[in-house]
Design a protein around this nucleic acid. Structure first.
Lengths: 172, 172
DNA sequence: GAGCATTACTTCAATCTTCAAGTAAAGATC
DNA sequence: GATCTTTACTTGAAGATTGAAGTAATGCTC
């Protein structure tokens, strides 16, 4: 096997430092805005907006956990909290007795609609405004390359959001 | 001021999705490796390795909080845990009765030395190997641009690590 | 169709994080 | 030099997260 250098060179170290900072500072900044203006955590926002992007505004908990990138256990707790606010309800999956849908209520949809603009404004301010179009494009493909290594099956969240509507028969 | 579009265009949305994934998946992957191979959280590793990079292997808690990007409160708790392992001790700052040094012990230093190669290998595998040199350079400067907006004073952590030994002798 | 493995979810306990006080030392201002 | 503010840190309670069971439905294999 190739023996790789045991430490990063100067340039790598520079980039690694920048990336580490981004990894901690950006979520914190987004979280702050959402918490202040909408009383939502970044995770909660991601969850609600994920549901809202879906044709029937529902997702199996398993898929939602995948989409938000966390454990079912955490998701289960957060859903309970969101149910308390009346933003989400659980519905059994008629096709599979094991799985449960998280369904966005009207109130939940309204919450997303109300919170999205502020969040988008922040994302735009912090990420898109400072970058040129070309820079943006390269940034995206660089990140994609890293993600391919972390998660080679590239469990495309977009696909998740689109693929779940086939089996709708009833409800509402 | 320009009124900005209320939502992201397709390309922006793509990039944003990639970035969101990176923000959650990369720390998780690094955390997993460290937890498995060294029994450390990413935060603990960052903290210990920050101390180890310092000329005297010590940093004021305030500076360490800044460096690791979190609250003093969290830091205080983590330091207590690390003290329990014998990796760190607290020492009062003779220059300023309010502040405390976190000092890396020999055992703590040994812990960093033992854990670093595995962590570096993971970082290299996930971030540097997939990128060309040119890509890397652009990636770094793109990130820097974003960070400049989030944190304009650009409180350079490198400076922190270097700057703390001057005042062993004098005050301000 | 019986038995075994897997999947989807929930819950509990342990740990971790945050937030809001609280303490105590410095520094600033008059 | 008395008072006011700021800075550095700690602590305790509340809330969040993880990890290990536990339950229940499903799928797989013989």
């Amino acid at each position: 096997m190739d023996s790789e250098p045991p430490w990063l060179d100067d340039e790598e170290q520079q980039v690694w430092l920048q990336l580490s900072l981004l990894l901690t500072r950006l979520p914190t900044a987004l979280e702050r805005q959402l918490q202040r203006d909408a009383g939502l955590s970044l995770y909660e926002y991601l969850l609600l907006s994920g549901l809202s992007m879906t044709p029937t505004r529902r997702l199996r908990l398993r898929d939602l956990a995948e989409f938000t990138g966390t454990s079912l256990s955490r998701l289960s707790n957060v859903i309970r909290k969101l149910e308390g606010h009346g933003w989400v309800i659980r519905e059994p999956d008629p096709q599979d007795g094991r799985s449960t849908f998280a369904v966005l209520t009207e109130a939940g949809y309204a919450k997303v609609v109300a919170s999205a603009p502020g969040h988008v404004r922040e994302v735009r301010k912090l990420v898109f405004d400072p970058l040129s179009t070309a820079q943006l494009r390269r940034f995206g493909s660089t990140i994609r390359r890293v993600l391919d290594v972390i998660d080679p099956h590239g469990c495309d969240p977009e696909a998740l959001l689109r693929a779940e509507d086939i089996e709708q028969v009833s409800s509402r």
